[in-house]
Each structure stands twice: as structure tokens, then as C-alpha cells.
Design a protein around this nucleic acid. Structure first.
Lengths: 188, 188
DNA sequence: GTCTATACCCGGATAGAC
DNA sequence: GTCTATCCGGGTATAGAC
């Protein structure tokens, strides 16, 4: 048990929390530095730029989200519950650490300029993870129409995330789960 | 038929197009001024600030979206098609003028700081419009469960808008319509 | 009302010492 | 690797003339 994490680690943690909570665009580098207790030059030595820090933070966040979702799936009993577990995972993931406003990956893409490769890549990886695992989990339920069902659920998940901007995020995730459940109830 | 619209009008048009296309946060005032062919002082004389201009532009945009959606509903034949018309309206609305990246109201809220009243108000009005009309249109289909169905559809519409960040917007809207249709097909 | 010119400040990034 | 101090640009907003 190390006494205190290194500067790099603290920068990543601070960036992840603050970017997710306040949005990347409207979170100044100074805020990250202050929370991490680190000097500006240290940030640029490690990550090169604010965008570089964002890329590293989003990459780490994607891994953690992947794990959290996998854990929620593992905790579910039947095929249908495993499909809906993504919404429980969203709520659980949000409750760890500083709560995020909505989705950090969608936020990165929304706030970025059109030619921002970092944001586009991060969102693409998140989308691939969602589409892929939803497809796997949909197979036992929808058979050869698994991809079709997965795409529907991807819309609902994205909708739940966007709804977090319109209303309370916890409410949004619960509503997303209900919508997905209604979709499954009438499936086929 | 006036020869050339006034500066105020041109500012509103330019702001609407550029903010929707590039995002409010990453669109500098200079870009709006250049497109409108107007001097900085004129903007501040009319709207007070960049945020003031945003508020006026979003307000006008909401009215136009309202009209576009109503027109799409009026063009539909049956109850089910009227409910799904929102997706056709989204595609049609996007095809008028400079195409927007996703939803200007969600974008405003996503990019803004937590205490931004303009963005919050604009998004709240958009949400109220969606929820209200979806509820009305859902009544013939869902009866006393109209509000429940409307909330599901609000999630799907929001999902379609968020999906516009993940993939091609036209594709996203088409997928949203398909998801809503699947939901309706299994309703009850 | 609209222009030109400019002030001001915030925020990302760097220089150089330790 | 990390710090202190500073630079520099871009972007919002204003002063003052027409």
C-alpha cells in the first residue's frame, strides 16, 4: 500500500473526475492541476497537452467502464436481466467517485471541434464496446436477429445518457431500463 | 420583399447555423460576425453577450422545430405514423440550411457550465415540447398509458439524437425510427 | 445603429532552475 | 520529474467616432 500515488496517477484521476463532472471543454487545466496538486509543467511533461491528458483519462475510463459493466452482467441471473444489466452498470459506475454529468465519451465528441481525433476515437471505442457486448448478450434472446436488437438497445442506452442532460441522471438510467424492458417485452 | 435583412436578423441566422453545426462552445463570436457581415459592437448592442445571442437563436430555433414537427405530423395518415413522424421531422429539419451536428439544445446543455441558465432553460423548453406533444400523439395509441409510452419515446428520440454523434445523423434518425417502431409493434 | 480600433482577461503552454 | 514564474494567443467585450 503506497503512501501517495505519483503525479501521473493523480493527474489521471483528477482529469477523469473533473472532465466527467464538468465537461471537458469547460474544465480549465488549472482546475485539474489544483486537484491533483501538481504543477503545470508536470502535466505537459507527461501528456503533452490538455488533449493528451484527455485521451489517457478516457482510455482508462473505458477500461473501468468495461469492467463495471462486465461485473453487472456477471451478477445477473437470466438472459433478459443480463441484457438490461447495462443500465444497472451505468448507475453503479456513476455512483463511484465524483458523479459525472452524463457520458464522458459523448461529451468529448459533442464539445470537440470536427477534426478532433482524440474525441472521435474515444467515442468510437465506447460505441464498439457497447455494440459488441450488447450483440453478444442479445444472442440468447434474439438469435439471428441479435444485431438488430443490439442496435435498438444501443439507441436506448444512448437515449438514457442523453436524458441525463434533460433530467436527473439516476432517473434517466431507470427510465432507460424501463424503456429497454418494454422493448424486450414486446420483442418478436 | 426587402433587399437585405437587418443586422439583427443576419446575426440570428448566422448564430443558429454556426452554433448548430460546430457547437456553441467551439464557435467563436468572430465566426458569427464574419458570416453575418456585422461588426462586434453591433452584436453586443443587440444581444448583450454571446450567451444572449445564443438564447435568442435557440428560442427561434425551437419555434422552427415546433413548426417542422407539426407539419410532419399533419402529413401523416394514421395514429402510429403520427407518433413516428418526429423522426421524419428530425431528418427534414436537419436538411434545411446548414446541417447541424446533433441537437442544438442538448449541445447547449452539454457544453455549458453547471450554472448556465440559458442552456438549461432552452433544453427544458425543448424537453417540454417533446414530452407534451409525444404525450398527445400517444393518447390514441396507448390510452391512459400515453404518458408512459411518451416517456419511452422521449428516450428513443434522445437516443437518436445522441446516436448522431456516434454515427451518421441520417442513419441515426432512421435507426431511431426503427427502434420506436419496434417498441410500438410490441406495445401492450 | 453601425463601424474601427482596442482593451482585457482567461487559459493553454513553455523556460529555466532545482 | 517537478517546481515557480511567465509567456502568448485567442476570444469576449467595450470605447469612441460616424
Amino acid at each position: 500500500m503506497t503512501s501517495r500515488p505519483g503525479a501521473r496517477e493523480r493527474l489521471l484521476d483528477a482529469a477523469d473526475e473533473l472532465f466527467a463532472a464538468g465537461g471537458f471543454a469547460s474544465t480549465p487545466v488549472d482546475a485539474v492541476l489544483a486537484r491533483a496538486g501538481v504543477a503545470p509543467a508536470t502535466l505537459y511533461a507527461h501528456f503533452g497537452s490538455k488533449t493528451g491528458l484527455q485521451a489517457a483519462a478516457l482510455s482508462a475510463r473505458l477500461r473501468r467502464w468495461d469492467d463495471a459493466w462486465a461485473a453487472a452482467v456477471a451478477a445477473a441471473d437470466d438472459d433478459r436481466t443480463r441484457l438490461l444489466a447495462v443500465f444497472d452498470a451505468l448507475a453503479a459506475f456513476r455512483s463511484t467517485g465524483t458523479p459525472s454529468r452524463w457520458c464522458a465519451f459523448l461529451d468529448a465528441a459533442a464539445g470537440a471541434a470536427d477534426d478532433d481525433a482524440v474525441a472521435a476515437t474515444a467515442l468510437a471505442q465506447d460505441t464498439a464496446l457497447l455494440r459488441g457486448r450488447l450483440g453478444e448478450l442479445a444472442a440468447p434472446v434474439a438469435g439471428d436477429r441479435a444485431e438488430e436488437l443490439a442496435e435498438h438497445l444501443l439507441v436506448v442506452v444512448s437515449g438514457a445518457l442523453a436524458m441525463a442532460l434533460r433530467t436527473d441522471p439516476d432517473r434517466a438510467f431507470a427510465q432507460g431500463r424501463a424503456t429497454a424492458a418494454a422493448l424486450l417485452a414486446g420483442w418478436r
